[in-house]
Design a binder for these strands. Sequence first.
DNA 1: GGCGATCCATACTCAACCGTATGGTTAACC
DNA 2: GGTTAACCATACGGTTGAGTATGGATCGCC
Lengths: 192, 192
Amino acid sequence: MNVSSKPERTRLSAEDWELAALNLIAEQGVGALAVEALARQLGVTKGSFYWHFRTREALLQAALERWEQYGEREVLGQIEQIADPRKRLPELFRRVAHELQPHRVYAALLKALDHPQVVPVMARVSQRRMEFLDTAYREAGLPAAQALNRARLTYAAYVGFLQLNFTLGLPRINHEEFDAYVEHMIATLIPA
Amino acid sequence: MNVSSKPERTRLSAEDWELAALNLIAEQGVGALAVEALARQLGVTKGSFYWHFRTREALLQAALERWEQYGEREVLGQIEQIADPRKRLPELFRRVAHELQPHRVYAALLKALDHPQVVPVMARVSQRRMEFLDTAYREAGLPAAQALNRARLTYAAYVGFLQLNFTLGLPRINHEEFDAYVEHMIATLIPA
DNA sequence: GGCGATCCATACTCAACCGTATGGTTAACC
DNA sequence: GGTTAACCATACGGTTGAGTATGGATCGCC
């Protein structure tokens, strides 16, 4: 049973709207975030929405901030607990590669970078992650000047892969090929 | 003199509309491609537009095809004339890095990957470019299995860089830093 | 069990755009 | 210089989706 099949709804909170918004963004992109569509999906009407939020923008803003804070705790938090700096990067690569679900919102927001509201959020998130990669590379033994550029390169490769694979469906790649690709990335980008 | 300042217009052709559309896409994205807005910018009204094109989609389609064919001749054509396979890839990297203007439409289309019309175009273009990289890496001495993955990695880095730099304005980087980044890419991705 | 706060439905307005209908204007060519 | 085809303006209809107004329903709580 999917999300929309909950006829036994009680009353909604602002949080419910934000989570539903994030779901819709992940599946259909920011452009599909319409209040009437969301209301239908939640089994209510606009009247409900405009009680919780002043405007559509306000909902998008709240949803983005929620997503940003969640990602802060969840995504980066886990990785930081890998002690050995040399194992941290390969492990990070492999985990990211096999937990594609959390990246769906990020990929959707990547397609929505023409919306002025998402730009600052994505800028902050991406900046933080690149800094994370930077220190990881330094701790793995790369000189400072190289570490930053390697971090940029790595993160660009991540972003580009999301675009090409998720959104564009390219390259058409199967499981084994994908694993080989990940290992190739590790061999190419991480210093021995 | 920018594009919009041509009050002494005579009559327009379909090509004029397509070029104007590509301009608008490059600057404001596919979502901003509205026929009335375009007409205003060209100093005419919708009446003109619907003589040249049956629908808005038809214009977008024509503009995309024009862009695709142009890129075929221009972008890839020049690089193929570099004889030495070992010099070809570094040269390609450096040229791409310093001719950012032609990449603006590509970056804009990257943001518009939720439009069903642009997906096949981008898929074809990206596929062709990755194949180009693949053979370039093989000719540079990389074994076939590695060459394809390296091509994927390289192109993903390119796409991601466009997104992070053009659209997101990240990383905040100056000219010298940028050159250093390009050289770092060359050193990391191209086999010695 | 009634009362105030919270939550929602219905019924609008308004603006943006796409597309159509139709008549007018300019260019080209004989 | 008159006719035809190419090009454009004006006015309209239709749709979509945001936001407002207002009254009704429901919950918490004394």
